[in-house]
Amino acid sequence: MKITGLLTVIICGALLTYYAMDFPDFGDGRSPANTYLSPHFLENTMHDAHVPNSVTTILADYRGYDTMYETTVVLTAGLACFFLLRRKESTSPPARFFRHVPTGLTLRIEEGGKLPAENSKVFTRIDSLWAPDSLIIRNTCRLIIAFVQLFALYVVAHGHYSPGGGFQGGVLLGSSIILFSISNDLRRTLKRFREKTAAVLGAIGVLIYSGTGFVCLLMGAHFLNYEALSPLLGLKTGDPMARSHGIFSVEIGVAFAVMSVMIWIYYNLSSAGKHDEGL
Protein backbone atom coordinates (compact mmCIF):
# COMPACT_ATOMS: atom_id res chain seq x y z
CA MET A 1 0.00 0.00 0.00
CA LYS A 2 2.80 2.35 0.97
CA ILE A 3 4.80 1.66 -2.20
CA THR A 4 1.74 1.98 -4.45
CA GLY A 5 0.90 5.30 -2.81
CA LEU A 6 4.43 6.58 -3.09
CA LEU A 7 4.62 5.58 -6.75
CA THR A 8 1.30 7.27 -7.53
CA VAL A 9 2.41 10.43 -5.78
CA ILE A 10 5.79 10.52 -7.56
CA ILE A 11 4.22 9.94 -10.99
CA CYS A 12 1.57 12.60 -10.32
CA GLY A 13 4.21 15.04 -9.14
CA ALA A 14 6.46 14.41 -12.13
CA LEU A 15 3.57 14.89 -14.58
CA LEU A 16 2.44 18.06 -12.84
CA THR A 17 5.99 19.46 -12.83
CA TYR A 18 6.37 18.61 -16.51
CA TYR A 19 3.20 20.50 -17.43
CA ALA A 20 3.87 23.35 -14.99
CA MET A 21 6.89 24.23 -17.09
CA ASP A 22 4.44 25.51 -19.75
CA PHE A 23 2.87 27.89 -17.24
CA PRO A 24 3.67 31.61 -17.27
CA ASP A 25 6.67 32.79 -15.30
CA PHE A 26 6.36 33.80 -11.65
CA GLY A 27 5.53 37.50 -11.40
CA ASP A 28 4.71 37.89 -15.08
CA GLY A 29 2.33 40.82 -15.49
CA ARG A 30 1.21 39.73 -18.95
CA SER A 31 0.16 36.19 -18.06
CA PRO A 32 -3.40 35.20 -19.10
CA ALA A 33 -4.61 35.26 -15.49
CA ASN A 34 -3.54 38.90 -15.19
CA THR A 35 -4.86 40.26 -18.46
CA TYR A 36 -8.44 39.55 -19.54
CA LEU A 37 -10.84 40.35 -16.72
CA SER A 38 -8.93 41.70 -13.76
CA PRO A 39 -7.77 45.00 -15.34
CA HIS A 40 -11.45 45.81 -15.82
CA PHE A 41 -12.10 45.31 -12.10
CA LEU A 42 -9.12 47.44 -11.11
CA GLU A 43 -9.87 50.29 -13.48
CA ASN A 44 -13.60 50.51 -12.69
CA THR A 45 -13.75 49.88 -8.96
CA MET A 46 -13.68 53.60 -8.09
CA HIS A 47 -16.03 54.55 -10.89
CA ASP A 48 -18.57 51.78 -10.25
CA ALA A 49 -18.65 51.48 -6.49
CA HIS A 50 -16.47 54.24 -5.03
CA VAL A 51 -14.43 51.62 -3.15
CA PRO A 52 -10.64 51.83 -3.56
CA ASN A 53 -10.04 48.26 -2.36
CA SER A 54 -10.85 46.29 -5.49
CA VAL A 55 -10.78 42.98 -3.58
CA THR A 56 -13.79 44.16 -1.56
CA THR A 57 -15.61 45.34 -4.67
CA ILE A 58 -15.14 42.01 -6.43
CA LEU A 59 -16.02 40.05 -3.32
CA ALA A 60 -19.26 41.79 -2.48
CA ASP A 61 -20.37 43.36 -5.74
CA TYR A 62 -19.03 41.86 -8.96
CA ARG A 63 -19.09 38.38 -7.48
CA GLY A 64 -21.84 38.96 -4.93
CA TYR A 65 -23.69 35.72 -5.57
CA ASP A 66 -20.57 33.68 -4.95
CA THR A 67 -19.97 35.31 -1.59
CA MET A 68 -23.61 34.94 -0.57
CA TYR A 69 -23.47 31.18 -1.04
CA GLU A 70 -20.06 31.16 0.61
CA THR A 71 -21.70 32.57 3.72
CA THR A 72 -24.38 29.91 3.40
CA VAL A 73 -21.67 27.23 3.16
CA VAL A 74 -20.15 28.51 6.40
CA LEU A 75 -23.52 28.39 8.16
CA THR A 76 -24.15 24.90 6.78
CA ALA A 77 -20.80 23.73 8.17
CA GLY A 78 -21.78 25.04 11.59
CA LEU A 79 -25.11 23.25 11.37
CA ALA A 80 -23.43 20.03 10.21
CA CYS A 81 -21.07 20.07 13.22
CA PHE A 82 -24.05 20.72 15.48
CA PHE A 83 -26.14 17.87 14.12
CA LEU A 84 -23.22 15.44 14.04
CA LEU A 85 -21.87 16.04 17.51
CA ARG A 86 -24.34 17.73 19.86
CA ARG A 87 -25.66 15.50 22.60
CA LYS A 88 -28.52 16.89 24.61
CA GLU A 89 -28.49 14.42 27.51
CA SER A 90 -25.83 15.48 29.98
CA THR A 91 -23.78 12.35 30.57
CA SER A 92 -22.14 13.45 33.79
CA PRO A 93 -18.45 12.55 34.02
CA PRO A 94 -17.51 9.96 36.68
CA ALA A 95 -15.77 12.58 38.78
CA ARG A 96 -15.91 16.36 38.91
CA PHE A 97 -13.08 18.63 39.93
CA PHE A 98 -13.43 21.78 41.98
CA ARG A 99 -10.93 24.36 43.06
CA HIS A 100 -11.11 25.86 46.54
CA VAL A 101 -10.39 29.48 45.62
CA PRO A 102 -8.87 30.86 48.90
CA THR A 103 -6.35 28.03 49.28
CA GLY A 104 -5.97 26.83 45.68
CA LEU A 105 -6.69 23.21 46.68
CA THR A 106 -8.18 20.88 44.09
CA LEU A 107 -11.08 18.63 45.08
CA ARG A 108 -12.10 15.48 43.23
CA ILE A 109 -15.72 14.59 43.88
CA GLU A 110 -16.88 11.13 42.77
CA GLU A 111 -20.29 10.56 41.29
CA GLY A 112 -22.94 10.65 44.00
CA GLY A 113 -20.85 12.89 46.23
CA LYS A 114 -22.16 16.21 47.50
CA LEU A 115 -21.36 18.96 44.97
CA PRO A 116 -20.80 22.58 46.02
CA ALA A 117 -23.52 25.10 45.22
CA GLU A 118 -23.74 26.18 41.59
CA ASN A 119 -22.91 29.85 42.24
CA SER A 120 -20.50 29.27 45.10
CA LYS A 121 -17.79 31.90 45.48
CA VAL A 122 -15.52 29.54 47.39
CA PHE A 123 -15.50 26.61 44.98
CA THR A 124 -15.16 26.87 41.20
CA ARG A 125 -15.60 23.95 38.86
CA ILE A 126 -12.51 23.09 36.77
CA ASP A 127 -12.00 20.67 33.89
CA SER A 128 -10.85 17.13 34.57
CA LEU A 129 -7.73 17.82 32.50
CA TRP A 130 -7.05 20.86 34.64
CA ALA A 131 -4.05 23.11 34.52
CA PRO A 132 -2.93 25.16 37.51
CA ASP A 133 -4.73 28.50 37.74
CA SER A 134 -2.52 31.13 36.11
CA LEU A 135 -3.04 34.78 36.99
CA ILE A 136 -0.83 35.88 34.08
CA ILE A 137 -2.74 34.00 31.41
CA ARG A 138 -6.13 35.04 32.73
CA ASN A 139 -5.33 38.74 33.00
CA THR A 140 -3.34 39.00 29.77
CA CYS A 141 -6.21 37.45 27.85
CA ARG A 142 -8.67 39.71 29.63
CA LEU A 143 -6.67 42.74 28.45
CA ILE A 144 -6.08 41.47 24.92
CA ILE A 145 -9.64 40.41 24.12
CA ALA A 146 -11.03 43.95 24.17
CA PHE A 147 -8.36 45.20 21.78
CA VAL A 148 -8.77 42.21 19.47
CA GLN A 149 -12.48 42.98 19.23
CA LEU A 150 -11.85 46.68 18.64
CA PHE A 151 -9.38 45.85 15.89
CA ALA A 152 -11.90 43.40 14.41
CA LEU A 153 -14.50 46.15 14.18
CA TYR A 154 -11.92 48.37 12.48
CA VAL A 155 -11.12 45.60 9.99
CA VAL A 156 -14.81 45.14 9.19
CA ALA A 157 -15.57 48.84 8.88
CA HIS A 158 -12.40 49.74 7.02
CA GLY A 159 -12.54 46.94 4.46
CA HIS A 160 -13.36 49.50 1.76
CA TYR A 161 -10.13 51.44 2.12
CA SER A 162 -7.54 49.02 3.45
CA PRO A 163 -7.03 45.26 3.49
CA GLY A 164 -9.89 43.77 5.43
CA GLY A 165 -13.57 43.02 5.25
CA GLY A 166 -16.27 40.83 6.63
CA PHE A 167 -14.51 37.47 6.56
CA GLN A 168 -11.34 38.72 8.21
CA GLY A 169 -13.10 40.81 10.84
CA GLY A 170 -15.52 38.00 11.59
CA VAL A 171 -12.69 35.56 12.15
CA LEU A 172 -10.99 38.05 14.50
CA LEU A 173 -14.20 38.52 16.50
CA GLY A 174 -14.69 34.78 16.72
CA SER A 175 -11.12 34.16 17.79
CA SER A 176 -11.45 36.69 20.63
CA ILE A 177 -14.28 34.61 22.11
CA ILE A 178 -12.32 31.41 21.52
CA LEU A 179 -9.35 32.99 23.31
CA PHE A 180 -11.59 33.70 26.27
CA SER A 181 -12.76 30.10 26.22
CA ILE A 182 -9.20 28.77 26.17
CA SER A 183 -7.93 31.08 28.90
CA ASN A 184 -10.93 30.50 31.18
CA ASP A 185 -13.19 27.55 30.51
CA LEU A 186 -16.03 26.53 28.24
CA ARG A 187 -18.79 26.78 30.85
CA ARG A 188 -17.97 30.39 31.64
CA THR A 189 -17.82 31.24 27.92
CA LEU A 190 -21.20 29.61 27.34
CA LYS A 191 -22.69 31.85 30.02
CA ARG A 192 -21.47 34.95 28.13
CA PHE A 193 -22.02 33.78 24.56
CA ARG A 194 -24.66 31.05 24.42
CA GLU A 195 -24.87 28.41 21.77
CA LYS A 196 -28.31 29.71 20.87
CA THR A 197 -26.87 33.22 20.35
CA ALA A 198 -24.24 31.79 18.02
CA ALA A 199 -26.83 29.90 15.96
CA VAL A 200 -29.21 32.85 15.74
CA LEU A 201 -26.44 35.36 14.91
CA GLY A 202 -25.12 33.09 12.16
CA ALA A 203 -28.55 32.90 10.59
CA ILE A 204 -28.99 36.67 11.00
CA GLY A 205 -25.74 37.23 9.14
CA VAL A 206 -26.94 35.24 6.15
CA LEU A 207 -30.29 37.01 6.41
CA ILE A 208 -28.62 40.45 6.29
CA TYR A 209 -26.74 39.42 3.16
CA SER A 210 -29.67 37.94 1.28
CA GLY A 211 -32.01 40.60 2.74
CA THR A 212 -29.88 43.31 1.11
CA GLY A 213 -30.32 41.46 -2.15
CA PHE A 214 -34.07 41.21 -1.67
CA VAL A 215 -34.38 44.92 -0.86
CA CYS A 216 -32.69 45.60 -4.21
CA LEU A 217 -35.22 43.25 -5.80
CA LEU A 218 -38.10 45.12 -4.12
CA MET A 219 -36.70 48.44 -5.36
CA GLY A 220 -37.08 47.19 -8.91
CA ALA A 221 -33.53 46.18 -9.79
CA HIS A 222 -31.76 42.86 -10.05
CA PHE A 223 -30.94 40.76 -7.00
CA LEU A 224 -27.89 42.28 -5.19
CA ASN A 225 -27.75 45.27 -7.54
CA TYR A 226 -26.99 47.82 -4.82
CA GLU A 227 -27.54 50.77 -7.12
CA ALA A 228 -31.27 50.42 -6.47
CA LEU A 229 -30.70 51.30 -2.80
CA SER A 230 -29.92 54.96 -3.57
CA PRO A 231 -33.47 56.32 -2.88
CA LEU A 232 -33.44 54.60 0.54
CA LEU A 233 -30.07 56.15 1.40
CA GLY A 234 -31.05 59.62 0.18
CA LEU A 235 -28.65 59.59 -2.75
CA LYS A 236 -29.13 60.55 -6.38
CA THR A 237 -29.87 57.68 -8.77
CA GLY A 238 -26.68 56.31 -10.18
CA ASP A 239 -24.51 57.61 -7.37
CA PRO A 240 -21.74 55.02 -6.84
CA MET A 241 -21.91 55.66 -3.07
CA ALA A 242 -25.08 53.51 -3.03
CA ARG A 243 -22.98 50.52 -4.08
CA SER A 244 -20.42 51.38 -1.43
CA HIS A 245 -23.08 51.34 1.29
CA GLY A 246 -24.61 48.15 -0.12
CA ILE A 247 -21.21 46.46 0.05
CA PHE A 248 -20.83 47.62 3.65
CA SER A 249 -24.16 46.16 4.75
CA VAL A 250 -23.27 42.87 3.07
CA GLU A 251 -19.88 42.82 4.82
CA ILE A 252 -21.59 43.23 8.18
CA GLY A 253 -23.73 40.21 7.40
CA VAL A 254 -20.65 38.20 6.47
CA ALA A 255 -18.89 39.25 9.70
CA PHE A 256 -21.85 38.13 11.83
CA ALA A 257 -22.11 34.79 10.09
CA VAL A 258 -18.39 34.00 10.16
CA MET A 259 -17.93 35.09 13.77
CA SER A 260 -20.77 33.05 15.21
CA VAL A 261 -20.13 29.95 13.11
CA MET A 262 -16.44 29.91 14.14
CA ILE A 263 -17.51 30.03 17.78
CA TRP A 264 -20.25 27.46 17.25
CA ILE A 265 -17.90 24.97 15.56
CA TYR A 266 -15.37 25.52 18.35
CA TYR A 267 -17.98 24.84 21.06
CA ASN A 268 -19.04 21.59 19.47
CA LEU A 269 -15.60 20.32 18.50
CA SER A 270 -13.77 21.20 21.71
CA SER A 271 -16.30 19.52 24.00
CA ALA A 272 -17.34 16.69 21.62
CA GLY A 273 -20.86 18.08 21.63
CA LYS A 274 -21.37 17.83 25.40
CA HIS A 275 -20.72 21.50 26.21
CA ASP A 276 -19.48 20.40 29.60
CA GLU A 277 -15.70 20.38 29.59
CA GLY A 278 -13.82 22.05 26.77
CA LEU A 279 -10.17 22.65 26.08
Binding site: L37, S38, L42, M46, P52, L59, V74, G165, F167
Partner: peptide, 30 residues
Protein backbone atom coordinates in the same frame (compact mmCIF):
# COMPACT_ATOMS: atom_id res chain seq x y z
CA UNK B 1 -4.79 46.11 -5.39
CA UNK B 2 -6.02 49.21 -3.57
CA UNK B 3 -6.36 52.04 -6.07
CA UNK B 4 -6.00 55.76 -5.14
CA UNK B 5 -9.07 57.36 -3.57
CA UNK B 6 -9.88 59.61 -6.49
CA UNK B 7 -12.73 58.87 -8.86
CA UNK B 8 -11.16 60.76 -11.75
CA UNK B 9 -7.60 59.48 -11.53
CA UNK B 10 -6.70 57.13 -14.37
CA UNK B 11 -5.83 53.72 -12.96
CA UNK B 12 -3.20 51.70 -14.75
CA UNK B 13 -4.10 48.07 -14.05
CA UNK B 14 -0.49 47.05 -14.73
CA UNK B 15 0.61 48.94 -11.59
CA UNK B 16 -1.39 46.72 -9.23
CA UNK B 17 -1.35 42.99 -8.60
CA UNK B 18 -4.34 40.99 -9.73
CA UNK B 19 -7.22 41.14 -7.20
CA UNK B 20 -9.32 38.32 -8.65
CA UNK B 21 -7.32 35.29 -7.38
CA UNK B 22 -7.19 36.93 -3.96
CA UNK B 23 -10.97 37.08 -3.83
CA UNK B 24 -11.32 33.48 -5.00
CA UNK B 25 -8.84 32.32 -2.37
CA UNK B 26 -10.48 34.39 0.37
CA UNK B 27 -13.59 32.32 -0.13
CA UNK B 28 -11.55 29.12 -0.58
CA UNK B 29 -9.94 29.65 2.83
CA UNK B 30 -13.37 29.94 4.41
Amino acid sequence: PIVPYDAHAAVQAADFINPLPHVLMLTAIV
